[in-house]
């Protein structure tokens, strides 16, 4: 499911990152810069992909030997309605309009694990893509739009589908390490649904940035799930955070409203593609997140 056009890693000429304000894009810029890779991060204030004039701007900026990483998307916290879906698709339409006429060295689209059928408990890159809401539908549709556009310009395309990402700079406050840390630091409390039995794979944002970096240096084509392959229960995550904080953090359990579902990722494609990549263990990643939270203003 993932093929390297460059078996031996080499630096891309330049990496253009769309969506620079995002949590992941920020980590990616940091990582690529630390690796000595030239990158240009562009935010919506400089190029708003919702507006048609973004096509001309991108066309004027993108060089044939550039690699393009697309992280831009309105995430569910910005809206889960049809209007948000249409805005996200409008971005894809403008990107496609540019990319079908103007190829580049590689396009890496940051998709999501939400594209997979929520009923499947073991996710692989070959798992069925099945929209469960408008957000997942958006990513599936964008993947198709970009596939069609890049096929026309013969541009190598890679989809990276991260599982639940955590890190100090995350702004989404979604259920999991990000929210748990914030409430633990603020209220000395972590609130779980039920007993937090659901099992999920949580990946440190730095690891996702490293994986995208590897896809760029190998000019990888195909699909890669950015996941550790080691899933843990939310209760385990909460306990781990309580341990990291070393204070009296209470774990509170609310009545469960939905059925328990689990989601694991099979890391085999990643292992084969990048044999020397070792994901950060959850306990180590949470400790780093704590250090970052307490040494910066992310609180």
């Amino acid at each position: 499911m993932l093929e390297h056009l460059q078996k031996q890693a080499s630096h891309p000429n330049r990496v253009v990152i769309l969506g620079s304000k995002g949590f992941l894009a920020h980590a990616l810029v940091q990582h690529l810069t630390s690796e000595g890779i030239d990158c240009l991060a562009i935010g919506s204030s400089e190029m708003d992909l919702i507006h048609p004039d973004s096509m001309a701007k991108l066309s004027g900026l993108l060089q044939p030997d550039d690699s393009l990483v697309i992280t831009s998307a309105l995430t569910p916290d910005k809206g889960k309605d049809v209007a948000t879906l249409m805005k996200n698709l409008e971005m894809a339409r403008h990107l496609a309009s540019c990319l079908e006429n103007q190829g580049c060295s590689q396009v890496v689209y940051i998709s999501s694990d939400s594209v997979y059928d929520g009923k499947e408990s073991l996710i692989r890159e070959s798992s069925t893509r099945q929209a469960s809401d408008l957000y997942s539908l958006m990513h599936i549709a964008r993947e198709q739009i970009l596939s069609q556009a890049t096929a026309k310009s013969k541009t190598p395309l890679c989809f990276v589908c991260p599982c639940a990402i955590y890190g100090a700079a995350d702004t989404h406050n979604s259920y999991g390490p990000n929210r748990f840390f914030r409430t633990a630091l603020k209220d000395c409390k972590i609130t779980l649904f039920g007993n937090g039995e659901e099992i999920r794979d949580h990946i440190l944002v730095d690891d996702v940035a490293r994986l995208i970096g590897l896809c760029l240096t190998h000019r990888s084509v195909g699909i890669l799930n950015a996941a550790t392959g080691v899933a843990q229960s939310f209760h385990h995550v909460a306990e781990n955070i309580a341990d990291v904080l070393g204070s009296n953090v209470a774990i509170e359990c609310l009545p469960r409203t939905g059925a328990i579902t689990h989601r694991h990722f099979d890391p085999t494609v990643r292992i084969k593609a990048f044999p020397q990549f070792e994901p950060t263990p959850l306990s180590v990643g949470l400790a780093k997140m704590h250090r970052d939270l307490t040494t910066t203003s992310h609180k």
Binding site: R124, G229, V230, D266, P267, T268, I271, K272, Q276, E278, P281
Partner: peptide
Amino acid sequence: YRADWALRQLHRVVLPRCS
């Protein structure tokens, strides 16, 4: 999936301790 069992065990148990 099963064909890669040994590979997964190697990455799960050995490589974190011996890079």
